[in-house]
Amino acid sequence: MFYPNSPQTSPQLTQIPYGQQYAMMQRQIQQPYHPFATTEPQARLYPYHYQGPIQQEQGGFITQQSTAASPQYVQMRVTPVDQSIMSGYPNQTANGSSSSSFNYNIHPQQQQQQQQQQQQLRHHAMPVGSVPLQDDRYRKQLIVNYLAPDVTSTDLHELFSRFGELDGARIIYDKQTNMSKGYGFVYFCHAEDAKEAVERMSGYEFHGKWLKVGYSTNPLNIVPSNSSPYVHAGSRGAAG
């Protein structure tokens, strides 16, 4: 039997160049792979992502010199942007860049009308829970959420009447099932009393439920100042 490094198959040491006398086997001759043993700084910083320098080929596509990437890492192929796409944008300079302001050559009167329309939209648009300043009635009506099913309009009136005089209180019921929808409205005579009720009743436990109280901004629920107070009856038909 002959071994790869046996004296019968191995040459004389004098015939082997210096430095390879003890590297006779194939696994010894093959050098191990060192990912950080390279002179390129990109490979030292990113050993798993770097795959060699990027070269520009004919046709405008950018390719990489090395083989496919590892399945664990996804390499994105980048193509140059066609400058003709950006030619339609206004205020574009000769080098292809555009300024931040756009001039669509709008007539001054049209621009003024658009600004007025935007101001009107901001004036009428009102986020949930906010209180408008032009109508004091919005500051007097509250919406009470997360009410228990057994709470009546009379219970709601008695709960909030300790903060001040009320114009009314009612629970909203479903017309088909005649069941409470879980929320109601309270109408105060003074805005200061309503503000105190919002601050003190939010998070209050009532009939096993934690109440959420806020201003009601729905104009359909506003009680006119010259109208008669609501009837605080315990029956659902009268309260709904």
Rank of each mutant, 00 (worst) to 15 (best):
121 L>V: 07
40 E>D: 14
226 N>V: 08
227 S>Y: 13
148 A>I: 01
110 Q>I: 11
82 D>C: 14
65 Q>R: 09
137 R>N: 05
186 V>S: 00
218 N>A: 01
191 A>H: 02
226 N>L: 06
104 Y>D: 02
140 K>D: 00
141 Q>D: 00
179 M>H: 06
180 S>H: 10
43 A>F: 14
99 S>I: 13
130 S>E: 12
56 Q>V: 13
41 P>E: 02
213 V>I: 01
120 Q>W: 15
113 Q>K: 04
200 R>I: 07
162 R>S: 13
194 A>W: 01
111 Q>C: 08
152 T>R: 06
6 S>N: 12
218 N>L: 00
102 F>T: 11
82 D>V: 12
42 Q>H: 13
29 I>C: 15
150 D>K: 02
179 M>G: 07
52 G>Q: 03
11 P>Q: 12
139 R>Y: 15
213 V>P: 02
4 P>C: 07
129 G>S: 08
139 R>V: 09
80 P>K: 05
90 P>R: 10
221 N>Y: 14
215 Y>A: 00
26 Q>P: 12
61 F>S: 04
177 T>E: 01
120 Q>F: 15
217 T>V: 04
41 P>T: 07
195 K>G: 11
188 F>W: 03
46 Y>D: 02
204 Y>M: 12
21 Q>V: 14
132 P>G: 10
181 K>L: 02
130 S>P: 10
207 H>F: 05
155 D>T: 09
51 Q>T: 13
53 P>L: 14
31 Q>H: 13
213 V>A: 02
192 E>L: 03
81 V>S: 08
170 R>W: 00
108 P>S: 06
143 I>W: 00
138 Y>D: 02
126 M>E: 03
108 P>V: 13
70 S>G: 13
36 F>R: 07
5 N>P: 08
179 M>L: 10
206 F>H: 02
32 P>F: 07
117 Q>F: 12
192 E>M: 14
34 H>W: 14
189 C>A: 07
231 V>Y: 12
56 Q>H: 09
44 R>A: 10
114 Q>F: 13
170 R>F: 00
42 Q>S: 12
165 E>R: 14
130 S>T: 13
189 C>N: 08
123 H>C: 11
197 A>N: 00
74 V>N: 02
212 K>L: 00
227 S>M: 11
90 P>A: 12
6 S>C: 11
168 G>R: 12
185 F>W: 00
130 S>K: 04
65 Q>N: 05
159 L>E: 03
223 V>Q: 08
21 Q>P: 11
181 K>D: 00
60 G>F: 15
50 Y>C: 11
101 S>H: 13
84 S>C: 13
12 Q>S: 10
133 L>C: 10
179 M>F: 08
70 S>H: 14
24 M>T: 07
3 Y>E: 02
184 G>K: 02
108 P>F: 06
171 I>P: 09
92 Q>H: 06
228 S>E: 05
184 G>V: 01
111 Q>G: 11
228 S>D: 03
77 R>C: 15
202 S>C: 11
101 S>T: 13
111 Q>T: 10
9 T>W: 12
127 P>Y: 11
5 N>Y: 15
70 S>W: 15
56 Q>C: 05
61 F>H: 08
228 S>T: 08
51 Q>I: 14
110 Q>V: 09
2 F>Q: 06
76 M>H: 06
148 A>T: 03
148 A>K: 02
158 E>P: 14
24 M>Y: 04
219 P>D: 00
57 E>M: 15
64 Q>P: 07
87 S>Y: 10
98 S>K: 05
37 A>E: 03
176 Q>D: 05
75 Q>A: 08
195 K>P: 10
50 Y>M: 15
104 Y>T: 08
234 G>A: 03
189 C>L: 09
237 G>E: 01
232 H>L: 11
25 M>R: 02
238 A>Y: 15
175 K>D: 00
79 T>A: 08
